[in-house]
Simulated assay, not measured.
Amino acid sequence: MDLAIIDQTKDSISPYHKDLVRAILNFAGTTLSLPENTEMSVTFVNNDEIQRYNREYRGVDKPTDVISFAIEEGDDVFNVSSEDDWVVDIAKNIGDILVSVDIIASQAEYLGHSYERELGFLVVHGFLHLNGYDHMINDAAEKEMFDLQRKILDDYGLKR
């Protein structure tokens, strides 16, 4: 997976945590059988910045843990014929996620698990949203998404 990690935090994200994000999202991409040339980005921000995005795009004026911006939502998908030779070379950009490092730390402490587990949970959660999963549709969709999220984290080794 072609993954851009952008750090816009006041205190930088450690190289270890960046490597963890790369590894778990590559693992999740393999789990979903995504093409190797799939593209996405993860941007780490502080609460004030994610609150700005949450207010602007969701109408909620408070910080949140993760926000996903999927590229291919709804009917606005660029369709090409699979018979075209050049199609195999086109990378699929699935979108961007924003993660608040402040909330990673506070939720990890509140839930009694590691920073790494919460980091993995949030990036996989955002990743699944980019791939069409939505826990807010109904109970069945919620169960499907959360079961897959738990499976990816457990299989990767980030168990609760």
Rank of each mutant, 00 (worst) to 15 (best):
A141N: 09
G95A: 09
A141M: 03
G132S: 01
E144V: 09
R150D: 15
V123F: 02
E144I: 08
Q107G: 01
E109R: 10
D147R: 15
G112K: 00
Q149P: 07
V124A: 02
G120V: 01
V124N: 05
D147M: 11
S114M: 02
L128Y: 08
Q149A: 07
L119M: 14
H113P: 00
A105H: 14
A108N: 08
E116I: 06
Y110K: 15
S100C: 07
E116S: 06
N93S: 13
L98T: 04
E116P: 08
S114G: 02
V123D: 03
E118G: 07
H113A: 00
E144A: 07
I97Q: 13
H129G: 01
D134Y: 03
N93R: 13
H135T: 08
L122A: 15
F127E: 07
L111Q: 10
F121Y: 13
A108C: 05
L128V: 05
V99C: 05
N138S: 12
D134V: 00
D134T: 01
G126D: 12
G112H: 03
F146Q: 14
K143S: 12
H135Q: 12
I137L: 12
A108W: 13
H113F: 02
R117A: 04
L111R: 12
V123I: 01
G132L: 00
N93P: 02
D96W: 04
S114R: 00
V124P: 04
D102W: 00
H113R: 01
Y115T: 10
M136T: 14
R150V: 11
Y133H: 05
Q149S: 13
L148S: 10
A108H: 05
D134L: 03
I137V: 14
G120H: 10
D139E: 04
Q107L: 06
L128R: 06
M145S: 03
F127H: 04
G132E: 00
N131C: 14
Q107H: 07
F127M: 10
G126H: 11
H113G: 00
S100R: 06
Y115E: 09
H129K: 04
A141K: 11
V123N: 02
Y133V: 04
Y133R: 04
F146W: 07
D102A: 09
I104T: 09
N131F: 02
Y110T: 13
L122V: 07
M145R: 03
N138G: 15
S100F: 09
E142W: 06
N93I: 04
Y133M: 12
E142C: 09
L98H: 09
M145W: 06
A105G: 02
N93M: 04
R117M: 05
Q149V: 08
I103S: 14
D96Y: 08
I94M: 13
S106C: 05
E142L: 06
A140M: 11
A105Y: 06
L119Q: 08
K143A: 14
L111I: 05
I103Y: 11
A140C: 08
L98E: 06
V124E: 01
I94R: 07
G120Y: 05
A140R: 12
H135V: 09
L98M: 15
G112M: 00
L128I: 11
M136F: 13
M145T: 01
H135Y: 12
H135L: 06
L122T: 02
Y110H: 14
D147Q: 14
S106M: 13
D96Q: 15
Y110F: 11
L98C: 11
G112Y: 01
D147H: 15
S114T: 15
A140H: 10
